[in-house]
Design a binder for these strands. Structure first.
Lengths: 166, 166
DNA sequence: AAAGTTGCGCAATTTCATTTCTCATTCGCA
DNA sequence: TGCGAATGAGAAATGAAATTGCGCAACTTT
């Protein structure tokens, strides 16, 4: 069933695959201490139950010519659900917007954007984002450098917490 | 050599592996239209040259009990390089901080944090972040919901751009 | 305590990854 | 124009991994 609890081995599997998504199943099985077939069954189950959403290569966007990363804080005029959804849908259709999170507080959304250069970002900003319907104000901040970028779950914190609650 | 330009096939490989990092090499080769051995060689080369930084399972942190996501805007008192680096190093050692980006403008850093619940985030905020050396002010925003989360490169934009420049 | 359920490991089969060779194309250079 | 050398593709072979089927043991449930 969806929601059935994970045991120690499942969490180890998730941690290993988060760290290296292309690990072979036999290597994974060795690391978590069971044989390959049950290990593969567990992985499939974790995928079906949604614990694993997918696997992705981590591609260096700067190497590919996307030199610019920007965080954009967006405020809307109206915040009825229909307005919020409409803006989210627009974000999903803007390829330069890679993330769109709705926030509490004065700012309604934060967007993480990429662009080949400052010029094309400005073009997107003035031509698309600022002129989009219902957008009240946008404050942008250029990313100077990135000190840490590890999307995912801090499994060490999770284990601590489980140990404490036990 | 590092820096040698990518051709059409290389970009297709990157796009495919970004979309599905566990694709088998034969499937990948079929999709990009070459045979398996040269395809594997290209993948290895892309890895060595740093175009591919790694592969990761996309694990659902909410399913694992991390209910809370927060963006934290951090300002420091002093911004000499040593001060900036020191703060970055601290971020790398905080497991709840998953991303740390240095920004231009009034805010010095933006952090993306996760936590099991609000209480443990508040505890981190007051006990660690706010009391850390050189931290002047922190403004936090809770993530209400996430409309888009697709880290990586918009390959459609890349291809457009290459077609235009050609 | 018997029956059902769950999950493991072993063994066999299919599929894939990886290496090795050979061949075609391209480019520099005489 | 023609001769290597280099680059990169495909074909075949080999070894490793993924996947399936099955039996067994432990734990629940009744």
């Amino acid at each position: 069933m969806p929601g059935s609890k994970l045991d120690e081995i499942d969490r180890m599997i998730l941690a290993e695959l988060q760290a290296d998504g292309r690990m072979t199943n036999v290597e994974l099985a060795k690391r978590v201490g069971i044989s390959a077939p049950p290990c593969l069954r567990r992985v499939r189950t974790l995928e079906e139950q949604g614990y694993i959403r997918g696997y992705h290569a981590d591609v260096d966007s700067r190497e590919l010519g996307f030199e610019v990363q920007v965080f954009a804080m967006v405020g809307l005029h109206k915040q009825a659900e229909a307005d919020l959804s409409a803006f989210e849908e627009r974000c999903r259709n803007w390829p330069l917007v890679r993330e769109c999170h709705m926030l509490n507080g004065e700012v309604d959304f934060i967007l993480k954007c990429v662009a080949p250069d400052l010029r094309s970002f400005q073009s997107f900003l003035t031509g698309e984002l600022l002129t989009a319907d219902n957008v009240a104000h946008v404050k942008t901040s250029l990313v100077i450098r990135c000190a840490k970028d590890e999307p995912g779950v801090p499994f060490d914190v999770l284990e601590e917490r489980l140990a404490r609650d036990a």
